[in-house]
């Protein structure tokens, strides 16, 4: 078992190397000149050239790549082209913010999703089922920024009980987490429902029913445990996804997260920030998947990675 853990952890390394190489190539192939973005539209050629040299962008690409990789291996992600700040410092706090939003948002989604999906499966084809799946459908299909603005208008502008944006207190977290949670809950609800219905059709459930167990006990105690595996997979994927994909929520609520930083850096061609940001996101994504795999073993005693 522990051998398997270590093997799985080691597979993260080629993934990260791959991400590093691919992002490096893609951002250098993308048109647009970082030095020009730093210098500004009204800069003359000499200023742009001087900045290009300062940033080390006039060196041949392979040289840039080697120096970048060797710096990264020593834990040095360089300085942002634009702000001149250490990328490490710039990214760390933003990453923690995003992690906080993602974890709380996905927790909200999980609770909503499992409850809604469970109710649906408990009363299949009833009006409760339709209502819960309708909410799930809205969560999946309504744009996040629209949900965010509606929440903001109701709770911030009309009721005045929550701040409309920014960070710092737990109140600031409520609306963005709810918005993100609702958007992600739909998928979890649908997965829970279909997985539960499948399990509920199995023989042992029928037998249990015959023994006189109540429907609630059956669905939420026995069936749910067996139906939860695919749900865990979805939750894990969504956690990984929201680390980079929460950018819309972050933008609408002025939440100082990593997604906003990375997307902004793409527009300004701030290579060191893009690279470090994507590497971090990829690492977290892979790591969360790793955790999910490990979780399988905990949830389902039959699974043993030997």
């Amino acid at each position: 078992m522990s051998q398997y853990f270590i093997r799985r952890l080691l597979t993260l390394i080629p993934v990260l190397i791959g991400v590093l190489v691919v992002t490096f190539i893609i951002i250098h192939l993308t048109p647009g000149d970082p030095a020009r973005m730093v210098a500004g539209m009204d800069a003359d050629a000499a200023t742009v050239a001087a900045i290009r040299e300062q940033l080390g962008l006039n060196r041949p690409l392979p040289v840039q790549f080697v120096s970048y990789v060797s710096n990264v291996l020593r834990g040095d992600f360089g300085r942002s082209f634009h702000t001149g700040e250490q990328v490490r410092n710039e990214i760390a706090w933003r990453y923690l913010n995003t992690l906080l939003l993602a974890v709380v948002g996905v927790s909200v989604a999980t609770v909503i999703g499992i409850v809604a999906g469970g109710i649906s499966a408990r009363f299949p084809h009833s009006w409760l089922d339709s209502a819960a799946m309708m909410v799930a459908l809205i969560g999946i299909s309504a744009p996040v920024f629209w949900i965010g603005l509606v929440f903001m208008y109701i709770f911030g502008v009309q009721l005045r009980i929550l701040p409309t944006g920014g960070s710092g207190t737990w109140q600031h977290l409520v609306l963005p987490a709810l918005t993100l949670g609702l958007a992600l809950a739909g998928m979890i609800a649908r997965m829970t429902r279909s997985s539960l219905l499948e399990v509920l059709g199995q023989d042992y459930i029928r037998t249990s029913k015959a023994y006189g167990f109540s429907a609630n006990v059956l669905v939420f105690r026995y069936a749910l445990r067996n139906a939860i595996l695919p749900v865990i997979t979805v939750v894990g994927l969504q956690l990984g996804y929201s680390l980079a994909g929460a950018v819309l929520t972050e933008t609408v609520f002025a939440w100082p997260g990593l997604g906003r930083l990375v997307v902004g850096s793409i527009f300004t061609r701030d290579y060191p920030v893009i690279q470090a940001g994507l590497l971090l996101v990829a690492f977290t994504f892979a790591f969360v998947n790793f955790l999910v795999d490990m979780l399988y073993a905990l949830v389902d005693p039959r699974i043993r990675f030997d």
Binding site: V157, T164, G165, T251, A254, R260
Partner: peptide
Amino acid sequence: FRVVPEEATRVFQLETGE
């Protein structure tokens, strides 16, 4: 100086007095 990238949010913040 608060960074609020979305213009609709900025307008909301003015309305709420934030």
